[in-house]
């Protein structure tokens, strides 16, 4: 950073009070991150809401397609509650460990604890993905392919899209671990971690919807 005075175009009032964004705020100990976090984290919330609309549409499509099995395998033939439950637990625990990472980011100057929690989170995310892929593979062998029926098309639009998000979040997490190694915990890395946290918890929330509506609803 240079020491010259910078006036951002459009920011005439430099002394405006700092607004807090929803979720964990880093607080006054991280003053140097405060300048960027408000806009960046807020922007990410807006993106998250638009993403939620996509999932909302796919949920609605799935529900309307429930009866459209075209004589093929239906929910009770294809879904296993035990498997879905394990995936739910993996993702829920990963959300908890990411929460611990966020707390480590806020309260500890030592990077080791933060990185350790992030690695645990990454492993749980990858475990979830492996389990989900195994599930899909099993569905395929039982004739549950996307082209079989409207119901299966809707299923494979909704659930793997969530999985794709988890893959993206894992890649992002690895990239951020690299940024921590290269740049230490500078403000862009911190705001990056805060935005990834929002995505991670969001994916957890969407999965709760999938578990309740698709798996529990399908088996009951």
């Amino acid at each position: 950073m240079t020491t010259t005075t910078k006036i951002h175009p459009g920011h005439t009032d430099q002394a405006r009070p700092r607004a807090h964004h929803p979720g964990l705020n880093l607080g006054p100990a991280h003053q140097e991150s405060e300048d960027t976090r408000e806009e960046m984290v807020f922007g990410f919330w807006v993106f998250m809401m638009s993403d939620l609309i996509v999932f909302g549409l796919l949920f609605a499509t799935y529900v309307t397609m429930l009866g459209g099995t075209a004589g093929g395998p239906g929910p009770s033939d294809l879904f296993e509650l035990k498997s879905a439950f394990i995936e739910t637990m993996l993702l829920l625990i990963s959300s908890f460990t990411f929460g611990m990472a966020s707390l480590a980011l806020k309260y500890r100057s030592d990077r080791k604890v933060l990185v350790a929690w992030l690695l645990v989170t990454l492993l749980l995310g990858l475990g979830f993905l492996a389990h989900e892929l195994y599930d899909f593979h099993k569905m395929f062998t039982e004739g549950g392919v996307p082209s079989r029926s409207g119901f299966l098309s809707a299923f494979f639009s909704l659930v793997p899209l969530h999985g794709l998000h988890v893959i993206g979040a894992c890649i992002w997490l690895i990239a951020l671990l690299g940024q921590i190694a290269v740049h230490r915990l500078d403000p862009p890395t911190k705001t990056g971690l805060m935005r990834l946290a929002i995505l991670w918890h969001f994916l957890d929330v969407v999965w709760i919807g999938i578990f309740s509506l698709v798996y529990l609803g399908g088996i009951v």
């Binding site: 240079t2 951020l176 940024q179």
Partner: peptide, 19 residues
């Protein structure tokens, strides 16, 4: 595309000041 996006995340000098 993916590599470019990840590499972009490592860039820290994203602004330039005109005196």
């Amino acid at each position: 595309t993916l590599v470019a996006i990840i590499a972009r995340g490592y860039v820290r000098k994203t602004t330039r000041t005109i005196p």
